[in-house]
Amino acid sequence: MKSLNTDQHGHLQNRQDWNQQVAQQLADTDHIILTDDHWALIRAVQDLFDETGDTPPMRLLIKVLRQRLDPAIDSRHLYRLYPDGPVRLASKHAGLPKPKHCM
């Protein structure tokens, strides 16, 4: 297991350190097994971050996921993937900073 340089919340300090293996390692620390649905969410969060320079709030994330992936996606779907906080954990596993709007 590679030693990761993270902040006090477990988010990578340097996004350039991110890759799929690192994402899996971060997910392992949260006891999450990444599925195809997790990876789609991770990629969407990364894309939104690249487009806006910030992690998306839940409502914007759902709107974008509905447009890009599946019109049926809702907050329940995201909470099934990440029961302890979809935006925070998806951002963490995507190698992004802790969202400003998350506790």
Results as ranks from 00 to 15, higher is better:
I42G: 00
F49A: 05
P56Y: 08
T52V: 12
D37Y: 03
R15C: 09
L60I: 11
K100D: 02
K100T: 02
Q13F: 00
D70T: 07
E51T: 03
D30V: 10
G53N: 07
R59C: 02
Q67C: 03
L41I: 12
S91R: 10
M58V: 14
H38L: 06
L34F: 08
K98G: 00
T29F: 07
A94S: 14
L60E: 12
D50S: 12
A27H: 03
W39L: 08
L26A: 10
D28M: 04
Q8C: 10
M58I: 15
I33Y: 09
Y82F: 15
K92H: 04
N5W: 15
I32R: 02
L60Y: 12
D74N: 14
N14R: 04
M58E: 13
Q20T: 14
G10N: 09
W39G: 08
S75Y: 00
L81S: 07
L4M: 03
P83A: 04
L34W: 04
R88A: 06
H11V: 10
L41T: 14
I73K: 01
Q46L: 01
I73Q: 02
V64Y: 07
I73H: 01
T29L: 12
L65A: 11
I42N: 00
D84T: 08
D17A: 12
L34V: 09
P56R: 03
A44T: 12
R76N: 11
I62V: 14
D7A: 14
H31D: 15
P56D: 13
E51C: 03
L41A: 13
L81A: 10
Q16S: 13
A44C: 09
